[in-house]
Every structure is written in structure tokens, then in C-alpha cells.
Computed example of a mutant assay.
Amino acid sequence: MKIIKNIIGGLAGAIALNILHETVKQFDHDAPRVDLVGEEALNKGLEAIGTEPLEGNSLYAATLAGDILSNAFYYSLIGAGKKKYLILRGLGYGAAAGVGALKLTKPMGLSDAPATRTEKTQALTVAYYTLGG
């Protein structure tokens, strides 16, 4: 039963993260565009296995689905441990994911500009993932 609760909690965090991201990017030019990093990663992966890259709505939908699933899995790990430290673990996992979004893109061969464009963009990137956690 705990595994199901963890998955539901992880999914809730991933959905909250994506709703926030999709909403703020409509109104704020400095908002992180981690979705663009995801699209680049997905298409590079498809090209690496000899598949045609996606475009338009197909690329957007596949990236959004992959983002929600991967973040839900990651955030579900927060529940694996003592309940006493759940909030601290959530903050730590979330902040770690945000810092990872800033620091791991370039070493992975991806553009970091959508997450590191300005200091505000960087702060929002970490804040979004922390909120998800």
C-alpha cells in the first residue's frame, strides 16, 4: 500500500511541477523552458536509435508525457523512508532535481540556455522542482 501512496504522491508532485511550468511560461519571458531541454533530449535519443525526430504537437505531447512519468518516478522515491523526515526529503529531492536541471544539461550534450538564461530563470528552475518535491 505504501508503494501506491508513494506513486500517487510522486505523480501529484510531477503534475504540480508541470502545471506551474506550463502556466508561468505563458506570462513570463524569464520563465524556465525545461520543456525545450526535454524536447532536445527526446529527439537526440530518437536519432541515436535511427528513428525520425518528432515535431510539433507530437514532440510536445511525447516530451510532456515523458517528463511527467520520469518526475513522478523520481518524486515517488521521497516516500521511501521515515515519515518523520518526509518534508525535508521532499525539499531535498526537489532542490537536487532543480540543481540537476541547471548543471547536468551541458555534460549530457544538451543546451542549458532554457534553464540558465538569467539568474531569475535559474532561481525559478530550482524553485519549480523544489515545489514538486
Rank of each mutant, 00 (worst) to 15 (best):
K5M: 06
K44L: 10
T125S: 07
A12Q: 10
T118Q: 01
P53A: 09
E47M: 08
G38K: 01
F27W: 13
M1E: 08
G92F: 07
I7P: 09
L69E: 07
L69S: 11
Q122R: 15
I49A: 00
A61R: 06
I78N: 05
H21Y: 09
K83N: 11
G38T: 03
G56M: 03
L69G: 09
A96N: 08
F73E: 04
K82D: 12
I87Y: 08
L124F: 06
P107H: 04
A61L: 05
L124R: 10
K103M: 03
I4L: 13
Y93R: 10
E55T: 15
I87F: 14
T51V: 11
L11P: 02
L54K: 14
R33S: 04
G56E: 02
A14S: 11
I78P: 01
I78V: 15
S70N: 09
Y60C: 01
K44H: 09
A95T: 15
G100F: 09
A61F: 04
I68S: 06
I15Y: 07
E55G: 06
A31I: 00
A41F: 15
A12I: 12
K120V: 13
R33F: 02
R89F: 11
Y85E: 04
G100H: 09
E22D: 13
S111Y: 06
G38Q: 00
L42D: 10
T116F: 05
L69F: 12
G81P: 00
L20W: 12
Y129M: 14
L54V: 10
I7E: 01
L11R: 08
Y129T: 10
A72R: 09
D67P: 00
Q26W: 05
E39S: 06
A61S: 02
K44Y: 06
G13F: 03
L64Y: 10
S76N: 08
A48Y: 12
K120S: 09
K83R: 11
D28H: 13
R33K: 10
A31H: 05
T63W: 02
S111L: 11
Q26D: 05
P114D: 07
R117D: 11
E52R: 15
G45A: 14
H29R: 11
P107G: 04
G90K: 00
P107I: 03
Y75S: 02
T130A: 14
T23G: 04
E22I: 13
I3C: 03
S111F: 05
I68E: 03
T51D: 01
I7M: 14
V126H: 07
K84E: 13
P32F: 04
A101Y: 09
Q122D: 02
N18G: 12
L69K: 07
L54Q: 07
V99M: 05
L69P: 05
V37S: 09
R89G: 03
G13T: 04
I3V: 12
A12D: 01
T130Q: 07
A127I: 02
S76Q: 07
Y129L: 13
L42S: 03
A115Q: 08
I78G: 06
T116H: 00
M108H: 04
L64G: 02
P107S: 03
E40Y: 04
K2T: 14
I15T: 10
I78Y: 05
M108E: 01
I49P: 00
T118M: 01
G13I: 01
G45C: 08
L77V: 12
D28M: 15
L20F: 12
L77G: 15
F27L: 05
I7Y: 08
K82H: 08
